[in-house]
Nucleic acid binder design. Sequence first.
DNA 1: CGGCATCCTCTTTGATACTG
DNA 2: CAGTATCAAAGAGGATGCCG
Lengths: 216, 216
Amino acid sequence: MKTYGQYCAAAKALDVVGDRWSLLIVRELLNQGPCRFTDLKYGLPGIPPNLLSSRLRHLESAGVVERRAEPPPVATTLIHLTGMGRELEPVVHSLAEWGVRFMATMAPGDVFRSQWLGFPVSLYLNDREPHGQDFTIKVDTGDRPAYIEVRDGSVRLRLETMAEPDLILSGAPDIVLGLLSGHLSLSQGVASGLEVSGPTALLDRIVPGYAATSLG
Amino acid sequence: MKTYGQYCAAAKALDVVGDRWSLLIVRELLNQGPCRFTDLKYGLPGIPPNLLSSRLRHLESAGVVERRAEPPPVATTLIHLTGMGRELEPVVHSLAEWGVRFMATMAPGDVFRSQWLGFPVSLYLNDREPHGQDFTIKVDTGDRPAYIEVRDGSVRLRLETMAEPDLILSGAPDIVLGLLSGHLSLSQGVASGLEVSGPTALLDRIVPGYAATSLG
DNA sequence: CGGCATCCTCTTTGATACTG
DNA sequence: CAGTATCAAAGAGGATGCCG
C-alpha cells in the first residue's frame, strides 16, 4: 500500500497495518498464538495465499511479526508476534468491541472459527462467584470445539481439548453468541436449535443478565 | 470493499471502517468536529475527491457519519459523526498510540496539519500543577496555528485563534513534537531551529521529563 | 502435505480535469 | 463549494502449479 504521507501517528500506524487483511492476521496471532502458515490461512477464510504471503513479508519487515524455525517435534517455522505486534492488542480489541454491534445476526455465507469467541468471552463473561468451584464449558459450533474455562475467578477461552467439561453447548455460532452475551435466554436459544447438556445453573455464574432472562 | 464474510466482531468492524482512508476521515471529524467537504479534504492531504465522496456515502449509509444542512451563517451542509461514529474514538486513539513510535523523524514529503497535534497533547501532556495559573501556548508549525490551553488542571488543543498566548513555539512539526514528547530538550530543539518566545518555565508544567532534560 | 509463486481477471486507487 | 468524469496504474481475488 502506498503510504499516506502524513506526519500523524494514526496515519503512520495505518501505513503499517492498514492494508486489507493485516489487522486480521494480527487478530489470529493474538487469538491462536504462534501459527504455521496453514493455521493462519485456516483462521483467515477467504484470503488468497499469495496475499497472506505478501502481508507476512510486509509485517515481518516492519517488525510486527517474526518467523522462528522451531525445533522438533514442531519441525516447521512458526510465525510469532513481536513485542511491537502484541502492542496492537488494544487496537484489535477496540475494533472488536466496536464491531460487536454487527453480530446480532449472522449474514448468510458468513464463516465462523472457534477462536473468534475469544472477544465475546473477554468482553461479556466474568465470574460472579470468584471463590466457587472451577468448571469448564465445551462449546461446539461446527468448527473445532472451544472451551470456556472458569478458574480462579477468571473466565478464559481455551482451544486445546479439555477433558470432561461440566457443560456442553452446541449450536449455531450466532445462537451461542446470543446466549453468552445475554441477548438470548436459554429457552430462546433452545428454541433456535441450541443443545445444552449439563447443569445449566453454571451459566448463571458467568453470563450477563442470565438471572433476569432465565426468569422471563 | 468486499466484506470479509467472517462472523467475527473485528472483521465486521473492518467491513465498515477498514477501507483505505475511512479511519482517517473519522480521525478528522474527531479532531476538528463537524466539517465541510472542503475542510475534510484539507485535513486528508492526498485523498482524491471522488474517494472522499465515495467513502462519505459509505460511512453515511453505515450510520457512522451524517450530513446536516446548517442554518445561516454557515450556509452549507456539515458532516457530523453520529454517536456510533464517536464510539470509534478508542479505535483511532489506540492506533495513534501505537503509531507514535514512527514519529521520531519526519519522512521527506510528509505533510502536517495542526489538528494532528491533538494525539500527542492528550497522550503526553498533563498539568503537574493543577492549581497553578491558566496559560496558553501558541504552536506554529507552518500550518495554521494551534493553541495548547492549560486550564483548570487539564491540557487541551484548541484550533481557534486565542488572544495573547503566554508562550509561542515555532518550528518544524517533528521538532515541536520532540519537545512536547520530552524526547528533545529545549536546547536541542533550539539547535534544530525551534524558536521560542516567552517564559519557557511554563513548559515545565506540562512536558514529560522536562525537568530532567533541561538539566542535562 | 506445508509454504508459497504464477497467471489472469476484475476492482480500486490516484491524479487530473471539469461542472452545477 | 461540493462534488462528478475520465483514465492509467496498482492491487485484490480466485485458480492452479511447483517443490521440498
